[in-house]
Amino acid sequence: MLLSTKDLSFEYPGSSEMVFPDLDCGSGETHLILGPSGSGKTTLLHLLGGLLKPKSGSIKVNEIDIGKLSGSEADKFRGQHIGLVFQQPHFVSSLNVEENLLLAQKLAGQPTSSGKITELLEQLGIAEKLKKKTSELSAGEKQRLSIARALINRPAVILADEPTSALDDDNCKNVINLLEDLAAQNGSALIVVTHDKRLMDYFSKKTLLN
């Protein structure tokens, strides 16, 4: 298993404990986590991404329990093994498209490669935006660029938080297909959390939070 959780729970200070169902996701598998607002979808995703530390239980990515890593170890591990896609695509505004991806490579400790970047952007259909400022991209292009950033280091696990909810139907279909295709191509585990019902049909495994 690329990703597995067991007895995972989390507690925000001053609120009640959240308990999450166990998850397993293998190479090339896709997993949809559905739930209404406030059901802890984003919290779960942040736990899986090492942005939050669980109260109890384990999160294993590539057999490493990321809940037990120190702050900077978790940062480094995340950069190398986990790709994250957010609902609102944000980038480093002082950098152009290519530089944003070069930074992602650098911060993950990977060798920087413009060739890899161009190749990935071609697959995503935005290769001609290489030298553009990120602010000049359309909403769909931005989301594709954030997929590129999540995938540039060929992570074991791709975590996407509401990647399509800000997009129209065409872009939604486009983006989810790209995510699935590239995850499959990389052999990554893809986990998407959403309340977007349009995505129901695309996923083999589904978990409902409530």
Partner: peptide, 18 residues
């Protein structure tokens, strides 16, 4: 103004000291 992008830099693998 840069809160989100600084968080992104952390997501991409930079530590707090970075």
């Amino acid at each position: 103004g840069r809160k989100y992008e600084l968080a992104l830099i952390r997501v991409m693998g930079s530590s707090r000291s970075g």
